[in-house]
Amino acid sequence: MKKRDIMALPAFFALVGPALIIYLFIIAYPIVYSVALSFSDFNPNRGGSWNFVGLLQYKTMFSDPNFWHALKNNLIVVAVSVFGQIPIGFVLAYILYRKLVKAANFFQTAVFLPHFLSTIVIGILWRRMFEADGPISRLMQITSGDPSAQFDLMLYSDTVMYPIAFALIWIYTGLYMIIFLANLQKINDNLIEAAKIDGASEPQVFFKVIVPMLSGTILVSVILAIAGSLRGFDLIFSITTQGLQRTNAMVLPIFMYQTAFQNYSNEMRFAYGAAISNVIVLISLILIAISKLMSRKTDV
């Protein structure tokens, strides 16, 4: 190390130190604590000693049908995000970029608008839409002529994710549209003109020119979508009511919350909750690794 570099060390530590300390306390410490907790029976609310219980919490989790139900719902949310929000956002961005519609600014604002609203507000708004004799039920009553018709998809575990998927697409598509639009605007118009002169149709321009050029953006969006979907709690919590609806729509973060914070019949509930949260992180890392691998293989 040069003498000049050694002289700069105090300044370096003074600049980086505060942020590093905050990072270690707020991010690193809870992660290490959570991993350690998941291998113990410790209940921080009750106090007492830590006892190492090995993989007990993980074994309990994998034999719990609620875990698999929540994981299935979570994977549906991931699928909706990756195969719903991102493609729709991309197509909308392309339509705006190529000026295939009039009043592009209006549509851009309209699609992005939900992203400005609090997720809790959106959840409550959609809950009102789906309630008994709510707007959607009224629409069904008017169109079917049956005054007793009700929108009841939220009551069944097989159908609850359809309305939630719709709400998810409504909220987040605008975000991906803006990301893609910003990156599309950086593309040199001459490339598209050249493709047109060579006889490329609009779909060919889209798939052969635009998509490959935005492969990096697509990958970043997929990572964002996966991470956001797996930790998503607020929307599903607020769009459902306590009881049957929330049980039907349970995703891993809600399962973790209910286990750790509400299930007093399980004395090891904090350790169990920590195990669930660690698995959420692990699944997230696996899915991100898969998407990176696929993007390399397909060179998207």
């Binding site: 049957l244 049980t247 209910q258």
Partner: peptide, 16 residues
């Protein structure tokens, strides 16, 4: 705990 949750959810399932 989960017994109370199962009862509450269960009553909703019975009614529906």
């Amino acid at each position: 705990g989960d017994a109370n949750d199962a009862l509450n959810t269960g009553m909703q399932k019975i009614v529906s």
